[in-house]
Amino acid sequence: MDLLPSQDQLDLIAAASDFLESRLPIEGIRQRADDPSAVDPDAWREGAELGLLTLGLDEEYGGSGRLLDDEALLFATLAEHLAPGPYLASTLGARVAAQCGDLPLATAIGEGSTLVGLAELRGDGCIGPDSIKGTFDLIDHAGAAYLLVASRQGTALVRATQFPDIGDLPSADPGSRLATATVDAATVSHWLPAETDPLWLRGTVLAAAGLAGLANALTTMSTEHAKLRVQFGRPIGVHQAIKHACADMAVAADASRSQMLFAAVCVQSGREDAAFQAYAAKAVATKAAIGNGAATIQVHGGMGYTYEHNAHLYLKRAHLLAHLFGEPAEVLAELLDQGAPQ
């Protein structure tokens, strides 16, 4: 039994962090706010070259063949740096292509030359092996050749051309792009059934990992501010009202990180309670990231209420991730439907 990152994993996190800090600094989100795409295409390809999209992909498809806990740590790191771009959809998209035996597509996605956006069914509709139907939120679809459409039964890749009428919507998260599209019978180009690979659970764990990363970054942000900001002649962190808020954030971040790693191992190893652990991870991490986002704005006072400060970017990303791979209420209902954990 081991739930601590290995030296190898720590190196991986450090390499990803270095890249994100130098090539995709958070300030870039504000600079690109009016751009159709949230991410600079060159930076996207550089990240892909570094292996950010193919960490968990089998080596025969050009990936690093690493396990889900590595990917989870990477997604936590991406979120800690608010990395823009469709990492989640493209990582899973490469996996769908690979499992369907489409080596060229898997390679193109992995290299960063083909982008995959995310399509989330909102309301009634249908996601099946041949076609999909319904109204979808499209997340980071700009420049994407495919959209990933996931359900508990299986996951589809659908060509972007299958969504004829895309209406751009203002995105609450300045680091992402949002659109809506309704389709009657869009053709599925690749379908990966859940029995072959539980992609829904992988997506759930990676979303949870992102949320856990946000919760952690927010804890650090608040704690550092509490040490530096002086009022009444002392750093505000001496006061229990602030100190305890920071402590609660740290605890929530630790709980969400521990659980998402636990879930990653369970999903990876196909443990019987994998779904239970993944849903628990998403539920815990959602609460932690949104709670810590709200608390961070409060700890920062007036500064926290400004667009210039990063706190709201984290909170907004948290709300975005919360609505991927199941609505929060749905995740709780699924969790309660599971048998007792192993």
């Binding site: 039994m1 739930l3 709980a255 521990s258 659980q259 790693l261 239970f276 539920a283 609460k287 709780l332």
Partner: peptide, 17 residues
């Protein structure tokens, strides 16, 4: 119930860590 189930799972994971 689901929320406390999730929270208890995370406490267990924290205990393991």
């Amino acid at each position: 119930l689901a929320e406390v189930r999730a929270a208890v799972a995370s406490l267990r994971a924290m205990t393991y860590v």
